[in-house]
Design a protein around this nucleic acid. Structure first.
Lengths: 202, 202
DNA sequence: GTTATTTTGTACTGAACGGTATTTATTGCC
DNA sequence: GGCAATAAATACCGTTCAGTACAAAATAAC
């Protein structure tokens, strides 16, 4: 924990508190999360929240960015670390489903697709973040497929861009169904089928 | 407009007011929609709203049901009316994109996936509605594909259930991107590619 | 031990919220 | 015209909201 030289020491770490805020927004959405909800979950009081994060709105944007850089990009990281196309898609979807069904309570899904999307109208920056996140993921997946093509693990006819888009579509399908309450087991059981729809049979 | 025999006549129709409420919830979400927003858009005052729809929560559930029975199921209806598989999928996606990019303003998308999903935690009935809607759509699409198989318009190897799921995944991808602000033209231009991913080449 | 500095903790503010009591207006029936 | 019935319209209620003022506490420097 970084401390100043003088003055009363801080009792919390910015990143830990931000992660807690992510959980609150993920569960209740932006408008559904009150400052009481947030401060209680983050373990800090209101003045600390305001001095550290600004207002509720900028805390929200920080939380979305933290999610995007962490949990939100974990599936893409798993994809990139895999050795072959089928494993890459399978790892992508497995990490995805695990993150979207992580909670013991109901209603997890994706913070971006299931919660932040609601606020794309009232907070323009959110719309931009949604678009940028999707675009970035699409490009990374496309490049990953292109790499596999160069390695001859995918045929030359394989359309990397279209398949990257399809894989993201599948991601959004899982996000919706996780949020709707469908259990992890059911979704995991579908992954093989989805892999087959993205990667042509051997 | 159905009127009572006695008493002051109503100045609004329930369905019209409900459709207006749908628009508000679709734009701002449940928690982001105030009663002032709702009554203003619906053209009625608070007591009328409460006597007709109960409270905000039950108005919300009514609005979701109305959306599901109307706009939300329009793509499936278009699918069912088509004469061949490619046209069915194409019509499904075309109607979908048109509905999700209907507004001149930003942030349309799907009321269920882009807005209602947020409230699946705080209002349990919403989670159930999301799940039931997806299940119903999946079954109808699956039966449609099966019909095309019987008509020999699709090969026996065609997996109707898996393809129905994939088509719904694509729907959720479009919903996300519409909500993120991607324009109708871009999405329409992608439909042919998506059709090819659902229906095998001739 | 005093001072300067930083953060915590509590209490508070005006505004907006969902919901309702009450009054007024408009009809059909006698 | 008077009465009963229904709905509209306004004004209001207590609560919760996001945001802040202010004081108490904890550290380093001297």
């Amino acid at each position: 924990m970084v401390q100043n030289k003088v003055g009363r020491p801080k009792k919390f770490e910015r990143e830990v508190a931000l992660d807690a805020a992510v959980e609150v927004f993920w569960a209740k959405g932006y408008d559904g999360s009150s400052l009481d909800d947030l401060t209680k979950a983050m373990g800090i009081n209101r003045p600390s929240l305001y001095s550290t994060f600004g207002d509720k709105r900028s805390l929200y944007l920080d939380a979305l960015a933290a999610y995007g850089a962490g949990i939100g990009s974990a599936p893409v990281v798993a994809f990139d670390e895999a050795a072959d196309p089928r494993e890459a898609v399978s790892a992508f979807l497995t990490v995805l489903v695990e993150n979207q069904t992580r909670s013991g309570d109901r209603a997890q899904g994706c913070l971006m697709a299931s919660c932040a999307a609601t606020t794309a109208g009232e907070i323009p920056e959110v719309g931009d973040m949604l678009a940028i996140g999707a675009k970035a993921a699409s490009i990374i997946l496309e490049r990953g497929f292109e790499k596999f093509k160069q390695e001859k693990q995918l045929p030359a006819s394989f359309s990397s861009k279209a398949k990257a888009g399809l894989l993201l579509d599948i991601m959004h399908g899982f996000a919706y169904r996780s949020r709707a309450g469908e259990g992890r087991k059911n979704l995991i059981a579908e992954i093989e089928e989805k892999v087959g729809q993205v990667i042509p049979a051997l």
